[in-house]
Design a protein around this nucleic acid. Structure first.
Lengths: 223, 223
DNA sequence: GAACGTCTATGATCTAGATCAGAGAAGCGG
DNA sequence: CCGCTTCTCTGATCTAGATCATAGACGTTC
């Protein structure tokens, strides 16, 4: 994996919520930030750590996850190129609310929380945009949390559809990763996906799943 | 139920996030607001309704709930005197994210969303305070949503402990309401609570449950 | 105080999905 | 090429908790 040729400044220019910044603010934010490289499986930060940086994925894929009692992992969010995560601590100055783990070799831009926070105070348009994303996030999470008692099939269908917005029809996650996203086990995930494969709704191969009939999948997801 | 003698203005003076307001802002917000009375079981608003008002409970108890496919209700939040709910739509101008239902006869102060929103724009201290509460809420919801695979016992223990912060040791909710809060059935709730009663951790009577050994309950909740 | 609705309680089943066990298949590193 | 790891897949079992059925206890209304 070679370094992307893009500068941090260029990345900010195409990523939320930084798009809304003027060149000067963008430049100063970029110059305060640093790129860090994480190997597959490496931890970017842990739940409860003091939130030193707001993170922005430059390359690769980072999962936000919670570890439940019993040790089972639950992935709450999949972040890829251009995705910003953990703005919350920049607003409330509290610790990180989850673990962040590189799911593949990744490059993450770390923007100091203080710089982000100062900008929020100084730039009303930036605050406005950040709040908007923040509200979206809260609605998402509330939606997610009320799906507790959906069947595994429905949860998986929803996970796949959400992922397909990011990745397109072919979703480059292992069955294990899909299981963690849907709060179930690998075995059950494989069983359910096999069923869907038999029905021609999707194809499956090592490390990826391809949606072939999005309509029917949407139907299963209860959209 | 008689009208409380307090004026809306007095109520605002002791409720979040309005405490932080100066007398002038508080007075104008109060004068734009109206009290509405809801009988037990009445709906204050429905999920998806345009969010015309931010709500503040003056008397009684209002439950925020989602209805899952299959029709089963899930209570996400219990609001009592002085609690403000649905500030989110005032920030992002989107519809209500859940149903609100009066669990007992209640009086709700309805603050027009536009007035709330204007105040957010005008008064930075108020914005600051609102954001803070908002962040808290997001963290709560994220916490909740990752407890999906806790056992019923643990979920019930957590519900009871949360409620006891609001009500004290004696929690005036029916077993049915506790079930909806913990995403389980009445029967299972009763069975689990019976067990806890046998262990001397709580007492139970018609329409209420009393925690007698908070320590042990906290232990079960996995604190 | 009779009748009705709500709440609490308990027993008997049933089932989705976890858990356990095993084994191919694909890729990777030497 | 061989060995090792990771991933996928399938079958057998087990269990928490839902669902179904029934009934007593309490409160409320006429």
């Amino acid at each position: 994996m070679a370094d992307s040729p893009r500068t941090i400044e260029q990345l900010l220019a195409t990523s939320e919520p930084f798009k809304s910044l003027g060149p000067a603010d963008r430049r100063s934010l970029a110059s305060a930030s640093r790129e860090t490289r994480y190997a597959k499986g490496e931890t970017v930060f842990r739940e409860g750590d003091p939130a030193e940086a707001v993170c922005l994925v430059k390359e690769g894929r980072v999962h936000l996850m919670k570890f439940l009692e019993g040790g089972q992992a639950s992935t709450t969010c999949v972040m890829t190129g251009g995705d910003t995560f953990c703005c919350l601590p920049a607003l409330d100055r509290q610790p990180y609310p989850a673990d962040a783990v590189a799911a593949v070799d990744s490059v993450v831009v770390r923007i100091p929380t203080s710089a982000f926070h100062d900008l929020l105070q100084r730039n009303p348009a930036f605050l406005q945009r950040s709040l908007c994303l923040f509200c979206e996030r809260l609605r998402q999470v509330e939606h997610r949390s009320c799906r507790i008692y959906d069947s595994v099939e429905r949860r998986l269908a929803q996970s796949l559809l959400t992922l397909s917005k990011k990745f397109g029809a072919t979703i480059p996650l292992t069955k294990h990763e899909l299981a963690e996203l849907s709060n179930t086990t690998v075995e059950t995930t494989i069983r359910v996906l096999s069923q869907l494969k038999k029905q021609g709704i999707l194809k499956s191969s090592r490390g990826s799943t391809t949606i072939t009939k999005p309509e029917q999948l949407r139907h299963l997801a209860g959209a």
